[in-house]
Design a binder for these strands. Structure first.
Lengths: 144, 144
DNA sequence: TCTTGATATTTCGCATGCGAAATATATAAC
DNA sequence: GTTATATATTTCGCATGCGAAATATCAAGA
């Protein structure tokens, strides 16, 4: 497949490997990586607007709805209508969600460290810049 | 997002941005990025075993079945039982599949080049090595 | 031959994610 | 105040991808 020369392919495979690893890690807690991401964000922004969560995690709003649904069904978060704006919904962590979020954060920290194994700080910086550059090269319509 | 999640988050977002870009590029051809990947691989390995395609693209076999189904339905490939091994299936490109594959390759090549914009050869090499390293850090059970 | 185990693929149920269209509410224009 | 438009979220249909289990076939061994 001449994978060596195709960044598209490399990135795709790398992403899938990472997701599988995270999902296996969090499976013990009946969490998925996407849900872990939401818990993590809400841990620092409890009660955030659904739209803000969607934007922060770079998930399309329509995808965020289902994600919030499943997490609400699992008892990890609760929706509450915003007092100011009747269109908005806020996502609040439940006690269970807070607890799971903390544990998931510990696990993912291990994985994140592993991602840097074998690479110098300077190299990780290059990688970070490259990953970030994709956001500019392929902007969402909105922030383009 | 928090530093401890940084690379995980960056990789996830980068992947989604890339996929959206590819999907928009290929949408004009009624192709998806996953299907483009299959066409690309078959372009060099026409008649490959389904399992080999699955492995080459790092897609789980059960996911490959549906992908092949949809592509067969779209008239891009054809399944043929292997003469030697009754369990195996081979994937063959149709004329339409060949044609679409060529055009998709041109488009994705542009995107692939864009991924390197603003980075030196040495930097891209670091990125490539990092992406590749994930395959060793998070191996499939099989090739672990 | 019969059985036992390995291998290739499929089926199933589920979670994720997208785009387009619908819905509901807010805000501006008149 | 009513209408037009913008915004937040949801609904819908679809494609992708996973893991577990089923199916079919092959390969060996008793």
């Amino acid at each position: 497949m001449k994978a060596e020369h195709r960044l598209i392919f490399l990135l795709t495979v790398a992403y899938r490997r990472l997701q599988r690893a995270i999902d296996q890690e969090t499976a013990a807690h009946d969490l998925t990586s996407a849900q872990a991401g939401v818990l993590f964000f809400l841990g620092r922004n409890d009660g955030a607007l659904i739209g803000d969560v969607s934007q922060a995690l770079d998930i399309v709003p329509s995808a965020m709805t289902g994600l919030a649904d499943r997490m609400e069904r699992a008892g990890l978060v609760k929706r509450r209508r915003d007092g100011e704006d009747g269109r908005s919904q806020r996502l609040h962590l439940t006690a269970a969600g807070q607890e799971l979020g903390k544990r998931a954060a510990t696990r993912t920290r291990v994985i994140n460290n592993r991602l840097m194994d074998g690479f110098s700080e300077a190299e990780i910086d290059v990688v970070s810049r490259w990953l970030t550059s994709l956001q500019d090269k392929f902007p969402k319509d909105k922030d383009g």
